[in-house]
Amino acid sequence: MESNKVIENKKAKKKRNSQLSDTWLRLRKDKLALVGLTILVILIFVAIFADFIAPYKYDAQDLSNILQAPSSEHIFGTDEFGRDIFSRVVYGSRISLQVGFIAVSIAVIIGGFLGAVAGYYSGKIDNFIMRAMDILLSIPQILLAISIVAALGNGLTNLMIAVGISSIPQYARIVRAAVISIKNEEFVEAAKATGSGDLRIIFKHILPNCLAPIIVQATLGVALAILTAAGLSFIGLGIQPPTPEWGAMLSGGRGYIRDYSYMTLFPGLAIVITIFALNVLGDGLRDALDPKLKN
């Protein structure tokens, strides 16, 4: 009997994992999420080692070889200045991934925090925060981003800040709604009864239970952020040529789309693949973070 108990305890100890490794174990069972994760890792790898992967420099012009179709020399073809599109897509991953992730991080962190505070405290604080969000929402997102970049000046950092700030209201609204639906659960009262502070209750008990909508919105948001950044680059704010950026390449190739569609095809594909990878990974992560769905 006694030895049985010891064995049982040992088992329990062995099984005790941190939440992180628990999540990983569950994520590993989700094949599609693993595909997404792999693609994302490759993309990040490409962005970091762009200097070694790209066969040409991203701004190397070869005016005798403009608008070439894909060939063994230029596997994605060349653009109107004879620049190698493959190299530009590779270098472009740096900017696009940065803009996508950092802008969304800004929006999720600030918007999520504001939304959580508004939802949790309700009353005057809620009204104040959400009316401020309504003001932001009433301005079209791209217009808002334009005015922020115009105020802060050009540049990658300012672009990310602009795109981030302009999508804060979405996250604030989603998080607020989710927090309101959770905060009256009894386990929140139980946490209050044990003397937990408000911040601990929000971060440990409420937010983990409303991750699903946040993750879904954030993975879609990365795509949206890349496109918004592209839009800004297109009107001359944000990323300046010749720096490659997927969105800017897309809009740059727009004029040639009928005869030289590969100019838009490849950067477009890059965006599609990134977003696809993020979405499946986000779905998988959402399920993996929920112990209820553990099989």
């Binding site: 386990f187 946490a191 929920d290 112990p291």
Partner: peptide
């Protein structure tokens, strides 16, 4: 004070954080 005074809730389904 809350260390000395505690509460057990009615619904064992919603009073435990599922995460």
């Amino acid at each position: 004070m809350l260390r000395k005074m505690q509460i057990v809730f009615q619904d064992p389904y919603s009073s435990l954080n599922p995460r």
